[in-house]
């Protein structure tokens, strides 16, 4: 954001990649991609690809970190050095640290953590290729990995970004759109109750525009929810 585009990004109702404003990129989801993990998944939205693995619940060491009445979640969002044009130096940046935190908060409300006292559930998210909307793609992958690990869940967690580009409200921003957008709002939610668990925004919008984008994302996210359910069924119903 912040960068101003000289050309129009939306021409005759079509975006750079030919999508309509409310169209999501092609979604691919596969559950069970890392044999060593208790649960795992790979999710792609267009060229953005996230892989998530869940280890646990497992006993947390050292013991002083254990919680007597609940499991704790540790979450790490990480971008692979080769995931973008300019190589990213390994090691977690401030951006990654913040995203790790908001991702954990986005997932926690879906879990019955009190079932596994004194344990830890580790969620590792690797962005292996980035083309916008990486944090929400990571959340979709983590949601599937948690379900695959057999964690008791209230609901799956759907992630999807909305925003404004030129004068148009759009869904699922790709990298270039993200760079030139007026605003970007990544959202995660539990679809059954439409409970929003991640909400961030940057850019400049009127309150009414913000509310419209939230509404649109909650609606369009239903498609992502269906894709998640399909991906889980594919693994378990042969």
């Amino acid at each position: 954001m912040g960068m101003k585009s000289k050309e129009k990004m939306i021409v005759e109702g079509k975006r750079l990649d030919g999508r309509t404003p409310d169209e999501i990129r092609e979604i691919e989801m596969k559950v069970g991609v890392i044999p060593n993990a208790n649960g795992s998944a790979r999710v792609s939205f267009g060229r953005t690809t996230a892989v998530a693995a869940v280890y646990g619940p497992r006993i947390l060491h050292p013991r002083r970190l254990q919680e007597p009445d609940t499991a704790i979640i540790r979450c790490r969002y990480n971008m692979a050095p080769f995931s973008v044009d300019e190589r990213i130096r390994p090691g977690s940046s401030r951006r990654e640290k913040e995203i790790s935190k908001v991702t954990r908060l986005a997932l926690e409300p879906a879990l019955f953590l009190e079932k596994y006292p004194e344990t830890v559930i580790d969620i590792y998210i690797e962005i292996i290729q980035a083309d916008g909307s990486t944090r929400v793609t990571g959340i979709n992958a983590a949601s599937l990995a948690l379900a695959d690990a057999g964690a008791p869940m209230r609901d799956l967690v759907v992630g999807l970004a909305g925003g404004k580009l030129d004068d148009t409200i759009i869904i699922d921003l790709c990298g270039k759109e993200d760079n030139y957008s007026v605003a970007d709002i990544p959202i995660a939610f539990l679809p059954r109750k439409n409970e929003i668990t991640l909400l961030q925004m940057d850019g400049q919008l009127n309150p009414d525009e913000v509310k419209t984008i939230v509404k649109n994302v909650l609606n369009a996210g239903k498609k992502v929810y269906e894709k998640q359910k399909e991906a889980l069924k594919k693994k378990y119903h042969k």
């Binding site: 908060l105 409300p109 929003i196 909400l199 309150p207």
Partner: peptide
């Protein structure tokens, strides 16, 4: 009155209307 940044925090969700 324009909004230029938002961030949700805390361990429970919000409905659209609450937001």
């Amino acid at each position: 009155g324009k909004i230029c940044a938002m961030q949700k925090s805390g361990d429970q969700g919000l409905s659209e209307e609450e937001t």
